[in-house]
Simulated assay, not measured.
Amino acid sequence: MKILLLEDNISLAEIIKEMFKEKGLNVDWFEDGEEALYNITNGYDCFILDINVPSLDGLNLLKEIRSRDKTTPAIIISSNIEFETIKKAYNTGCNDFLKKPFYIYELECKVDLLCNKEEEIIFCNNISYNLKEEILYDKNKNSIKLTQKEKRLLTLLCKTPNIAVSLDAIEQYVWEGEIVGISGIRSLIKRIRSKVCKEFIQTDNYGYKLITKK
């Protein structure tokens, strides 16, 4: 699982990163809201946002996130506990609001509750992909071998079914910023199509999208 953390308190951010690292999760940490905004399409499973940070505050960043992504869980962490601020956070689209100071265990529990839901995408011939396990199964529930990059791309597409993911976002998420170009992406898409049925992954001028049964 991949988390975007927006927090300008270095000590707190390091504690949060270490806690999630011990759980085997990846955390991309940003101190600046504008920098975080540039990266929000990189296939995150959860957003943890402080409000009072440089350049672009957490609530305005959340507004930008929700204009593109209505479903990925978002948790606001803030020492601003005024009722109007909390109300605005929920109205903007946060799933939970954690008041500072808090126990790290509280944040861990909230992320577990919001993000660790078993999800399954069904393809043709009862082939299915479990997002939590990142395992592709055939109709008899035998696992189908996937490379690490195939897993990352399939997971990225499954997170936003029926919505196109840009080529830039695919390159950022799967290759972590390494420039591979359209030929590298097409080659990876071709391999995945051979395993989940070609018609389930469609392309347009923007990028690729996964077409699902549900």
Rank of each mutant, 00 (worst) to 15 (best):
A169I: 04
T41R: 14
G58I: 07
K99I: 12
R152A: 09
E34Q: 14
E64P: 02
V111N: 00
F20D: 06
P161D: 07
R193H: 02
N205K: 13
N26I: 10
T212C: 06
T85P: 07
L210S: 00
Y38N: 15
T160I: 10
F83P: 01
Y173E: 09
I170H: 00
K145R: 10
L59G: 04
C46E: 01
S55W: 09
D112L: 10
S187H: 09
Q202T: 08
N140H: 12
L4C: 08
M19N: 14
N39S: 14
D138Y: 10
F123G: 01
C124E: 12
T212G: 01
S128C: 06
L153C: 03
E31F: 08
E31K: 15
K159P: 00
I48G: 00
L153R: 04
K213D: 03
T92S: 09
Y208G: 00
T85R: 12
Y129N: 01
G33Q: 02
I121Y: 01
K214E: 11
S166Q: 10
L157W: 04
E176A: 08
Q172A: 12
K21V: 06
I201K: 00
N125L: 04
A169L: 05
N116Q: 14
E14V: 11
E199Y: 03
E133N: 09
D50C: 03
T203V: 06
E120A: 05
E133L: 12
F83N: 13
Y44H: 09
C115R: 02
T71D: 11
E118H: 08
S11A: 15
L157T: 01
N162K: 12
N42F: 15
K190T: 08
T92H: 07
I127W: 00
K63N: 13
L146I: 07
F200M: 06
T92W: 04
G207A: 04
S78A: 13
P73A: 01
L167Y: 12
P101M: 07
C115Q: 02
I81H: 14
L25G: 00
P73S: 04
L188D: 03
L25T: 02
D69H: 10
V53F: 01
V174R: 02
N91Q: 15
A169H: 03
E199L: 05
K88P: 02
T85N: 15
D96Y: 15
I40A: 03
L56C: 06
E35T: 11
Y105H: 14
F20A: 05
T71P: 00
M19S: 14
V196W: 00
K23I: 03
K70L: 12
N130K: 10
I104C: 11
P73D: 03
D138M: 11
I51Y: 03
S183Y: 10
E134W: 09
E178Y: 13
S128R: 13
W29F: 08
K23F: 05
